[in-house]
Design a protein around this nucleic acid. Structure first.
Lengths: 240, 240
DNA sequence: GTCTATAGTCGGATAGAC
DNA sequence: GTCTATCCGACTATAGAC
């Protein structure tokens, strides 16, 4: 009743609005609408990266996207629909930027390997994630969106948990289990995985606090190196 | 403009309402008002522990406290005032529950000590904090309040940062620096401190996600033991 | 597809009686 | 001190013209 007050889900027509049919033009050409939709999504991604579902208003988004308010409803149904669309877009984009090291690690896990091989894969995965997260302002916002939604579950929790968090924790946990020489789903390995990931995320989600605590003005290459050093130390500490 | 939209700080009379003078009764007896104030504060603490500043409404709080809406204004001025009062109450209560191990560690830091002494103090401090955090439902809520406010800075950021976070990180960082044989304010030690604290907090702030990831139904003694084991391993890994 | 205008709701805060 | 009644602003969402 607290977080999800937006959906007066009881009555009302259960309209199933999804992407309006705007690509039906002959010759497969996309009509102009697709570009508008994208503009709205980008504006929303930015806004919801900076502020919570409740803090951001649809007015702000429509203004930033330079469309009128009802246009949001036209493309996304309602505020929650737009929010969920953001979550899906983030999942998509993060996936595209992370498959490299993650896929390699997953492949390695399919067969036998030494603990040290697993360890170096884990370092690669975490390193890639860290570099990606500080690489662009957008990635930074995505990280905030995800972290906020997972910590204070809202309309996009399931999407992010199932598509991002769960696979991420699972991969990490399996690598750690391999390092420790324990069974695949060892709880202790899972605990370590959660701790490792959260160690990384402190620096990216909720920037004001870590920046001030470290007396940094921003997270550049030098700062990233320190973070990675800390994470590597943590990974090296994992023992059977 | 996003998060702090509540204070139309520009115009308006800069009323300085503070605790109304309600204790002026002769013979030092407190009038009934003080009890009402406490009831409101407790209800607010509970509500703001579960939901964000924006998600919680003053109406909910007044209802839970069984007073009418204007009574909140009477005692706390406005919603932000009540929120800040909550932050101060939390600081106060956490302090009262953490001074033990923290004070001992601080004392040790004043003089020379071996890295191993520092390490055992660090374990004691982190262990005490962890036990406290899972000890009661209230503590759990306080942790969520603090974590939420630090990650998404709002009206109480400064209070919590200055009185809770800063001293906490500083104590931890100094202990770690001592373990590593580095100067007091070594940045690498600070990074480790932030990571360590966030490793602990991931299990307490935003419960839904870690619970699901671990397939736990709650964090009881058994789960706490696993968390502590992980944290101890992380502390043991700190090396010069 | 996109707009203007507006309906409907809700939340924070105030006035003033008791 | 605490209440009832009310105001006012802000928000989401819809109706309907173009």
């Amino acid at each position: 009743m607290k977080t999800e007050k937006s959906s007066k889900s009881s009555k009302k027509i259960p309209i199933q609005r999804k992407t309006p049919k705007i690509r039906v033009l002959a010759y497969g050409g996309y009509v102009k609408g697709e570009e508008t939709r994208q503009r709205i999504l980008d504006a929303a991604l930015k806004a919801f990266g900076d502020g919570s579902f409740l803090a951001v208003t649809t007015r702000q988004i429509s203004q930033a996207a330079q469309v009128s308010l009802p246009t949001l409803q036209y493309y996304f149904g309602d505020k929650e629909g737009l929010y969920r669309a953001c979550a899906e877009a983030i999942v998509e984009r993060i996936r595209r930027n992370t498959t490299g090291a993650a896929a390699e690690a997953a492949n390695t896990l399919k067969q036998e390997c030494t603990p040290e091989t697993a360890r170096s894969h884990l370092k690669a995965v975490i390193g890639a994630l860290a570099s990606f997260l500080v690489g662009s302002m957008e990635a930074e916002r995505w990280a905030q969106f995800v972290a906020r939604e997972l910590r204070d579950p809202g309309p996009a929790f399931e999407i992010l948990y199932a598509n991002l968090w769960k696979p991420g924790v699972e991969l990490t946990a399996r690598l750690i289990a391999r390092i420790m020489g324990r069974p695949e789903s060892d709880p202790a390995a899972r605990v370590q995985a959660l701790m490792l990931i959260s160690s990384l995320l402190v620096f990216q989600s909720g920037r004001k606090m870590p920046l001030r605590a470290m007396q940094w003005t921003s997270v550049g290459p030098k700062e990233l190196a320190m973070i990675l050093a800390g994470l590597d130390a943590q990974i090296d500490a994992i023992r059977g």
